[in-house]
Simulated scan of single mutants.
Amino acid sequence: MMIVRHAAHRDLDDIYRLAQRAGESGIGLTSLPQNKEILAERITRTTHTLEGISPKGDASYLFVLEDSSLKKIVGVSAIEVAVGLNEPFYNFRVAKQVHASKTLNVYKTLETLFLSNDHTGCSELCTLFLDPDYRKNQNGKFLSKVRFLFIAAFRSYFEERLIAEMRGFSDQNGYSPFWNALGYHFFNMDFATADYLSGIGQKVFIAELMPRFPVYVDLLPQEARTVIAEVHPHTLPAAKVLMSEGLRYQGYVDIFDAGPTLEANIADLRAVKHSRVLTVKIAEQIETAEIYYLVANDQYTDYRVLLINNHVSDDDILLMSAEQAQALNVQQQDQVRVLALENMENQK
């Protein structure tokens, strides 16, 4: 049985193993570094957040996907409560400038990149990685969409705006056309080094070295222009999952690889609008369906979620097996939050 829960310090070795596997997939997952000390701090931040002792700028939730039969952690995903409150959160705002002259009969619209802190204070989805051996049976969607269900249950803990930075294009050797055309000239370091330093929180160098004036996109090489707001092919499935939940590209890109930032108002998320709270009834016979559902116990500190294909009726009752109820740590007459795995409107 696959179950999602909060990360705990007993999971550190497994999470470190996942970080190593993430490193094999190339550059881009900077929030899951191959550094046990940093990973342990991520877990500690989750613990302190659940205990209510973290300031908003430090608050974070790290979730793990556990194969309960093997007692093995096979995936992670996370939410930052409010970015940019302790250290600046940077991206580029893709904008337009008009250059016109009536005398010369010239009117030209030029695309520009402005260094921005516009997403300061937003909540952020981040750190999604699934063991390649488990990329099947809807595990990827399960691990990603759990975060929306958690936000729906505990909406008051989050900000009004939610963002997610998508990995931009780089080739199998770590070459980023955008970085080489722009960032490299200001930082004099390779893309991998700059991205790693940013991912582990050492962002002061960005403020010190990044250009403060608008960058005219037309002045960049063609190979750099074409990857602005493009999602890395390996990240495209994850981006589609987020878009199915209501996030959209709104004109902001990463300063290193120009990957797009997806965003939405939390009030507009599918999980917020359409998740249902049902009462548990434990039964020996469970009718199954083709539709899969995320089912969460809505217990803040002992949060647990299953992916099941139990039939969900139109009434307020959810029939569950004793094994499922035990895995969720719920009993007869307890309430659970339920959301269809797929956005059914997208299936029409």
Rank of each mutant, 00 (worst) to 15 (best):
L162F: 03
L162E: 02
L162K: 01
A164Q: 02
E165T: 00
G168V: 03
G168T: 04
F169P: 00
F169H: 01
S170A: 07
S170R: 01
S170M: 03
D171A: 07
Q172C: 05
N173D: 07
N173P: 02
N173E: 08
G174D: 07
G174N: 08
Y175H: 12
Y175M: 12
S176E: 04
P177I: 06
F178G: 00
F178M: 03
W179R: 05
N180S: 15
N180V: 09
A181D: 13
A181L: 12
A181K: 09
A181W: 11
A181R: 09
L182T: 09
G183A: 13
G183F: 11
Y184N: 15
Y184R: 15
F186N: 13
F186G: 14
F187R: 13
M189I: 13
D190Q: 09
D190A: 10
F191V: 13
F191I: 11
F191A: 06
T193L: 15
T193Y: 15
T193N: 12
T193G: 14
D195E: 13
Y196G: 03
L197F: 12
L197D: 10
S198N: 09
G199Q: 03
I200M: 08
I200A: 03
G201S: 02
G201P: 01
Q202H: 03
Q202T: 00
Q202D: 03
Q202K: 07
K203D: 01
K203R: 13
K203N: 07
K203W: 06
V204T: 04
V204C: 01
F205W: 07
I206A: 03
L209K: 10
M210I: 10
M210F: 14
P211I: 09
P211K: 07
P211C: 09
P211A: 11
R212V: 08
F213H: 13
F213S: 14
F213A: 11
P214D: 05
V215M: 08
V215H: 01
Y216A: 05
Y216N: 05
V217H: 04
D218K: 02
D218S: 02
D218W: 00
D218T: 01
D218Y: 02
D218V: 02
D218G: 00
L219Q: 10
L219K: 10
P221G: 15
P221Q: 14
P221A: 15
Q222V: 11
A224H: 12
R225A: 12
R225F: 10
T226H: 13
T226I: 15
V227S: 08
V227W: 08
V227H: 05
V227N: 02
V227K: 02
V227D: 06
I228W: 12
I228A: 15
E230H: 11
E230T: 14
H234T: 10
T235N: 06
T235I: 04
L236R: 12
P237L: 11
P237Y: 09
A238G: 07
A239Q: 06
A239M: 04
K240L: 10
K240R: 11
K240F: 06
V241E: 04
V241R: 02
V241M: 04
L242R: 02
L242Y: 04
